[in-house]
Amino acid sequence: MEVSPMLDAADGLVRIPAEDLRTLVVGAALFAIGAIGFLTRRNLILLILCGELMLHGVSLSLVTFGKLQNNNEGQAFTIFLLTIAACEAGLALALVLALYRSARSLDVRLWTELREADVALAPIDAPAAVAASSYGEIPKLTPAGAEPAELPRRNKPRK
């Protein structure tokens, strides 16, 4: 069996083994990807999910460090993280629902009434115009006798 590297070091400092470094980088990558989503997407629920994804990255790092440090503190930290994330998710849902009731939309850009007085509003797309083009038209029965129109390739519904 492999001897733990920690006991080799006289000064209490050890290098993190490379295989665990990978896990740390995966954690950091989750964090970064979550941040990207948080900053680019406009759906309130997606924003919150992206926030949770960032926290996943943090959790993964914590757990990995917990293993490396050979104590339970990392995992305990993760549990608290989980608790707080759950709290925030709960609040977020209540909040999003309340917001949805007044705006009838989950678009975060609708919530720009408060801003510097003379800044132009960010453009908000009309949802109605989108419904047709995004997932493609919902298939309908063609009138009897007519050839079904071929859907353009790009507009195929995504699986």
Binding site: L24, G27, A28, F31, G34, A35, F38, G51, M54, L55, G57, V58, S61, L62, T64, F65, L68, Q69, E73, G74, F77, L81, I84
Partner: peptide, 15 residues
């Protein structure tokens, strides 16, 4: 969002 930043830092400090 800012909490996530702090937490990532804290995780590394702990580690």
């Amino acid at each position: 969002f800012s909490s996530a930043l702090v937490l990532f830092g804290l995780a590394w400090v702990y580690g």
